[in-house]
């Protein structure tokens, strides 16, 4: 019988701990498919964050490092600067990347560090049980914004792709979503392009994936996808925010 669908080699056999309906699984698979298709598992080193994806080190079958909260881009920098021929990616959530690790993210981009960041933006802290994130939408209810995010008190969400796009060091920035088949396919194309950017030695690439957190949003998986389409995508428009891959010389 012909095999028409199988697990990518770059994923281990370990069952993930993610909640039902969580989109981490989809993004893990897309990352793994891209690693397989580009044939880079042997030289890949992944950096796992603190947050829901903390145990990603068990799920990807390449070498993996678990970073302190927010520091994945610094760890990745240390690896890449030590092994310039390796392939280095981080996988981080919104609290990790856009709150406690803002400095690490911005400076890795500003340096044009030749690494790839997969950034999962689901507008909430998942692992700790649903607190307000730097990307939580105005008026969105979370455990620590029980009356809705009051922008007069706690300010506005951070739009990472827009912000990073002002940096000359960043080479490829794209925001995508995994809410439907069409967007899942677009996400895979974006990840592959970002990975290729690194393989070509062209510098910093980041793919922001607008994702759901049904558990902490208090919605069913389907309703969560609807909420994402109705609320998140209007605030975080999808698209390529920066692509200077054709301008940049190989490093």
């Amino acid at each position: 019988m012909a095999v028409v669908f199988k697990k990518p080699n770059a994923l281990t056999d370990k069952p993930t701990h993610y909640c039902p309906g969580c989109t981490h699984g989809i993004v893990h698979r897309l990352v793994a498919e891209c690693i397989d298709e580009l044939g880079i598992e042997g030289k890949a080193i992944g950096v796992a964050p603190v947050g829901c994806a903390v145990m990603a080190y068990d799920y990807f079958s390449c070498d993996m490092i678990q970073a302190p909260h927010g520091r994945a881009p610094a760890i990745a920098t240390g690896v890449k600067r030590s092994l310039p021929d390796s392939f280095v990616f981080t996988y981080q959530g919104d609290g990790d990347l856009a709150a406690i690790g803002t400095a690490e993210t911005i400076h890795a981009a500003a340096r044009g560090e030749n690494i790839t960041i997969i950034f999962i933006n689901n507008a909430i802290y998942g692992m700790t049980g649903g607190q307000m994130a730097p990307t939580t939408l105005p008026s969105q209810v979370t455990q620590t914004s029980p009356y809705g995010r009051n922008v007069n008190e706690v300010g506005y969400p951070i739009k990472m792709c827009e912000m990073l796009s002002t940096l000359d060091g960043a080479t490829y920035l794209e925001r995508v979503s995994v809410d439907c088949v069409k967007n899942v396919n677009a996400t895979k194309r974006a990840i592959k392009k970002a990975f290729q950017t690194q393989i070509d030695g062209k510098g910093f690439s980041l793919v922001e994936v607008i994702s759901t957190c049904p558990t902490n949003w208090g919605l069913s998986p389907n309703a969560a996808l609807d909420w994402l389409r109705d609320n998140m995508i209007p605030y975080y428009p999808l698209g390529v925010y920066k692509d200077s891959t054709s301008d940049k010389e190989e490093k």
Binding site: I65, A74, I75, A76, T77, G78, V79, S82, A103
Partner: peptide
């Protein structure tokens, strides 16, 4: 490689990355 980090925090994590990669840093 000499790299001036954006913070002490980043510097120690870069050290951890290099150490994990197996080089003397």
């Amino acid at each position: 490689v000499f790299l001036q980090a954006e913070s002490e925090v980043s510097a120690i994590n870069m050290l951890q990355g290099a150490g994990a990669a197996g080089v003397r840093a």
